[in-house]
Each structure stands twice: as structure tokens, then as C-alpha cells.
């Protein structure tokens, strides 16, 4: 079985500074995989490399066995990988409904159509409504996205990401800045939407990570020092050293 994402000696430098220094990683189909590591380890950069925001300096990225290295984001999305952002990245002037709808049109085959009417295409709207139901935002459907609360914007961010039905979902710090109860809701949502899908997420909240992930990779200074199940990661000496050496970050 080919893995969902396969990274081979992936590297990224900005000028002289090497941020990602040769990452080899296989993320299996259907697993929930968390990437953790201290601030500045390169977690977001790694996300950008996989999803096409940045082009790698060297190495390769494979999605379901197909080379996607250096492709633009929209090509990678069309091949079945969808991601969210750490800093909320939505369409502020459009309504919640329209935001989600933007996320489903391509994969439903409407693409650059200028001969279908969106309002009267039942298929598009029913799917949009199903996604809104799933992320629990039916009540807010007609609100401009810019007016949502922070937690709602984060949920919408996830909604846009999953709307198109991509089978590899990447979430960049989905619970960052949330209160305890909001985090709980977010975790339940992530669990629900990642069923039968491959989930890759960056997360600082160790409670969330150990509760959700099947496997965890620890990224330190642009290198992965360990990839294993949550239990074995807890006991891993190199991991403990890395975390204790920089900052104490258990259950932040």
C-alpha cells in the first residue's frame, strides 16, 4: 500500500538559513498524524512545503505515490490534499455560506464554469448546507465571515478545508488561542471530519495531540527526531531532552 504522503530528504532554505534540513517521513493512509515541536522548529514551513505554498530547495513530496514537488497549491488541492491555516485565512467580506461554497465548487466539477448559476444549482447548495451542519454553523450561515467570533472563524476555517471532500486533510494549529471548552468542541469536530481520511496536523496543545493522534512526529530544528505512537513518544529520551532543553511544554 502506498502511503498518503511520502517525504524524501525534503529541504528548505531561505537564503543561507536552512529551515528544513532533510526530512524523511511516511504518513500512512487513514492515520491521524500529529507534528509537534518547539517554536521555530519549522512545523509551519513543513506544511507550506507539502501544500505547495513554498517550493522545496531539495527533496521530494509524494501524494498517494504521485510526485507533487513544486506544484502550485491549486494543483495539489485538485489531487486531493486540502489544508487549513494557522492564522485564520477566510473570505472576510463573503458570508459563511459563500465561504463554504467556495470550498466545494472545484471538486464537484464546476471549476471555472460561467454557464452554471450557483444559486439555482441544487447540488452545490445541498452540499454546502451539509458541511455547515457538520461544522455546526447553520445559525451563522448568512453572517459575513469577518463578523464571526474567533472560535467560529476557526471552525469555518476547518469547514472550508474539508468542504471539497479531499482525502488528505492538513490542519495547522486548529485549536490555537481557543478556550478549554472551545478546544473540546474543536477536537470533537476534528475527530468527526477526519473519519476515513488521512489527517496531518500541527498542534501545540499536548492534550489534543495525545487524544487524537495515531502517530506523532517530533520536529526539532528542521529535523524529525522521532516518529512513533503517542505512548512511545512520551517515553522517548531524545524527545524529552529536546523539549526540556528548550522549554517545558507539557500540556500547555
Amino acid at each position: 500500500m502506498t502511503s498518503a504522503i511520502h517525504l524524501v530528504d525534503l529541504q528548505k532554505s531561505f537564503g543561507q538559513t536552512a529551515i528544513i534540513r532533510g526530512i524523511n517521513l511516511e504518513i500512512k493512509k487513514g492515520e491521524r498524524h500529529a507534528i509537534i515541536g518547539p517554536n521555530g522548529a519549522g512545523k509551519s514551513t513543513l506544511f507550506h512545503l507539502i501544500s505547495g505554498k513554498y517550493e522545496p530547495t531539495a527533496g521530494s513530496v509524494k501524494l498517494h505515490g504521485n510526485e507533487i514537488t513544486g506544484l502550485p497549491p491549486y494543483e495539489i488541492y485538485r489531487k486531493g490534499l486540502s489544508r487549513s491555516f494557522q492564522v485564520t485565512n477566510i473570505f472576510h467580506r463573503m458570508t459563511v455560506y459563500e465561504n463554504v461554497r467556495c470550498g466545494i465548487m472545484w471538486n464537484m466539477g464546476y471549476k471555472y464554469s460561467f454557464w452554471n448559476r450557483v444559486d439555482t444549482t441544487e447540488e452545490i447548495n445541498l452540499k454546502t448546507e451539509a458541511v455547515l451542519e457538520e461544522i455546526g454553523m447553520v445559525e451563522r450561515a448568512m453572517t459575513p465571515a469577518g463578523l464571526l467570533t474567533y472560535a467560529e472563524q476557526r471552525a469555518l476555517e476547518i469547514g472550508i478545508t474539508i468542504a471539497g471532500g479531499a482525502d488528505v486533510i492538513m490542519l495547522d494549529e486548529p485549536t490555537a488561542g481557543m478556550s478549554h471548552s472551545e478546544t473540546e468542541q474543536a477536537v470533537a469536530l476534528i475527530r468527526k471530519i477526519s473519519e476515513n481520511k488521512t489527517l496531518v496536523m500541527v498542534e501545540h496543545d499536548m492534550g489534543v495531540v495525545f487524544g487524537l493522534a495515531d502517530r506523532i512526529s517530533v520536529l526539532v530544528y528542521g529535523e524529525i527526531i522521532a516518529t512513533d505512537t503517542p505512548d512511545r513518544i512520551k517515553e522517548n529520551e531524545a524527545v524529552q531532552e529536546a523539549y526540556l532543553g528548550t522549554e517545558h511544554d507539557d500540556d500547555a
Binding site: P73, Y74, S82, N89, G103, M105, F114, W115
Partner: peptide, 20 residues
């Protein structure tokens, strides 16, 4: 139309449009 709605989306946030 879909592309007409996406024109608004690109106006608001071109980066995110690329990721859908």
C-alpha cells in the same frame, strides 16, 4: 456563476482561493 463567485473570493483572499 461559479467563476463569478470565485472572482469575489480571489478579490478578498487570493491565497486561500488557491487552496480550494
Amino acid at each position: 456563476t461559479p467563476v463569478g463567485r470565485m472572482a469575489n473570493a480571489v478579490r478578498d483572499n487570493p491565497e486561500r482561493a488557491e487552496f480550494v
